[in-house]
Each structure stands twice: as structure tokens, then as C-alpha cells.
Amino acid sequence: MSTYANARVVDTADVADSAEIGSGSSVWHLAQVRERAVLGANCVIGRGAYIGTGVSMGNSCKVQNYALVYEPASLEDGVFIGPAAVLTNDTYPRAINSDGSQKSAEDWEAVGVTLRRGASVGARAVCVAPVVVGRWATVAAGAVVTKDVPDHALVAGVPARQIGWVGASGHPLSESDGYWVCSATGEKYVEIDGELKEVTEQ
């Protein structure tokens, strides 16, 4: 295991010299972190995961085994990406041009997925760029996200559709007396024009 600027990088991981790995972060077996990727502090990159060129990742993110995070994805603090989930980057994917010539890096424009603070993407889910997954939102396992996900929304299915709300703890919220309430924390939220706002006691 190598030391990488106060991070743990195992010998079987492939980390580019130009990548930045924050203090306290871990990069595990067979993971690849490409050129100019930036990982914040206390991130965990699981076995076989892929972090693309120039991907930006905040603090305390967790990318589980064999997840694929293609550039130019942007992850804010506290993002969770489940096993084998994929963040895509090509709106019109082709291996060749219409004239039969092989595509090169100059033949397409990469577009990214943005995951806001505390968002979670479940196992084997796919986020089709360009989409934004809002703060504390949850994408269910196996879902295919093709449009933006609001803050605190719980989405599932193919294509993904909203089926509920979740709190910062990740637990589904239940409706009670005009509020959305987290059974785990007691936090209360109110829905206004399709958006969820936390209620702060005065």
C-alpha cells in the first residue's frame, strides 16, 4: 500500500500522477483514477471503480466497487455511488463516424452528470448525462435517470420517476399533518410548488 499525500492507495490501484487525492481518502484494489481527477478528503474509491479524467469530487464521497464515473462528472460533498452504477458522458454514442472512420477524442463533446451534496445513486443505476441529481436525493438501485432529480426526491424505474421524498438520513418521508416527516430523525419538511423545504423550529 502506497502513501499518496496522506491518502491510502493500494499497490494494485492505477492512479495518475496528476490526480489529486485528498487527505484520509482510500483507493482500493484495481481502481483507476485518471489524469487531473480531484478527490476531496476522506473519500473511498472501491475495488475496480473508475474515476475519469478531470472528474471533480468533494469530501467524504464513497464510490463503491466497479462503479464508473466518467468525465466531466462533478460530485459535491457526501455523495454515495453504489456498486456497478454508471455516470455516462456521451449524448450520442458511436464508435465510428457516419463515413465509417473511427471516432477520436475530437469527434464528440463530453457532457457530465452533477451530483449535489448528500445525493445517493443505488447499485447498477445509470445516470444519463447531462442530468443533475439534487441535494440529498436518492436514485434507487437499477434506475435509469434521464432528467434532473429534485432535492430530496426518491426516484426509481426505467426511466426513473419520482416515487416519494427522502430526508438527509436517506429514510423515506411520510406525510403527517401537512408535513413530510423523517421517522429516523424527526426532521420535518414542507412541500412548496413541487420542492421540499426543511422546517426549522423557531
Results as ranks from 00 to 15, higher is better:
123 A>T: 14
123 A>N: 07
124 R>L: 08
124 R>W: 07
125 A>Y: 13
126 V>Q: 03
127 C>G: 07
128 V>S: 11
129 A>L: 00
129 A>E: 02
129 A>M: 01
130 P>M: 03
133 V>C: 10
133 V>Q: 10
135 R>Q: 15
136 W>A: 06
136 W>S: 10
136 W>R: 08
137 A>K: 01
137 A>F: 00
138 T>S: 10
140 A>I: 09
141 A>C: 02
141 A>L: 03
142 G>D: 06
142 G>R: 02
143 A>E: 14
144 V>F: 11
144 V>M: 12
147 K>L: 09
148 D>G: 02
150 P>A: 08
151 D>V: 11
152 H>N: 15
154 L>Q: 03
154 L>N: 02
154 L>G: 02
156 A>Q: 14
157 G>N: 10
158 V>C: 05
158 V>N: 08
160 A>T: 06
161 R>S: 09
161 R>C: 05
164 G>P: 09
165 W>G: 03
166 V>N: 06
166 V>Q: 04
166 V>I: 08
167 G>N: 12
167 G>F: 07
169 S>A: 13
169 S>L: 08
170 G>C: 04
173 L>H: 06
173 L>C: 01
174 S>E: 13
176 S>E: 09
176 S>F: 00
178 G>H: 05
179 Y>T: 11
180 W>C: 08
181 V>I: 15
182 C>L: 02
183 S>N: 10
184 A>P: 07
184 A>C: 12
186 G>A: 15
186 G>C: 15
186 G>Q: 13
187 E>Y: 08
